[in-house]
């Protein structure tokens, strides 16, 4: 038959903490007094201590002899990745990113051209050479100068197409 517990829940927790060396100050002193005066509380402490001691009967599991070797073996790929130069470790994500950017750009251009229709295509075709050479035209101050460059005698050799 189970005997009624001589301690309330808080005292019980204090007792366990006391046995674990975790109770200090006034609470510890109060519990010490209780233990010295109350045989039931002493018996409670004793049975808790003994129960705790039973856990020493549990076998101590040991790792298998190959544990260290297997662990270090698993670690090797991580170490290799970590030792890889930055540019190598970044290479794949960079290409993936560039691929995605190109795909998005293509899709956006196609979408834009699709919306613009034939008229846009014609404009782009007509202006293509201008667009291609825009960086040269940026240095040209006026249109007359540009036209003068078109005189055949200035670039005779080139004009022959040789």
């Amino acid at each position: 038959m189970t005997k009624p517990n001589p301690l309330n829940e808080r005292e019980q927790a204090d007792l366990v903490a006391f046995l674990d060396g975790e109770l200090a100050g006034e609470a510890a002193r109060a519990l010490e007094t209780k233990l010295s005066l109350d045989p039931a509380a002493r018996a409670e402490a004793e049975s808790l201590k003994r129960t705790w001691g039973l856990l020493d009967y549990l076998p101590k599991p040991e790792p298998s002899p190959s544990f260290t070797h297997r662990t270090l073996e698993k670690m090797a790929p991580i170490r290799t990745t970590a030792a890889m130069p930055l540019w190598r470790s970044l290479r794949r994500p960079w290409w993936i990113g560039a691929g995605w950017a190109a795909a998005i750009l293509t899709a956006a251009t196609a979408g834009y051209l699709g919306v613009g229709g034939d008229a846009t295509d014609r404009h782009l075709t007509r202006d293509l050479r201008v667009i291609e050479n825009k960086r040269f035209y940026d240095h040209v101050d006026d249109l007359d100068f540009l036209k003068s460059l078109d005189q055949p005698d200035l670039f005779e050799e080139d004009a022959t197409g040789s």
Binding site: Q12, A17, T51
Partner: peptide, 20 residues
């Protein structure tokens, strides 16, 4: 503290026949 207290009560209840 509370967790360990309850755990030890439970252990004692389960192992009551073996404590002594």
């Amino acid at each position: 503290k509370s967790l360990l207290s309850r755990a030890r009560m439970n252990l004692r209840a389960a192992l009551a026949g073996y404590v002594y």
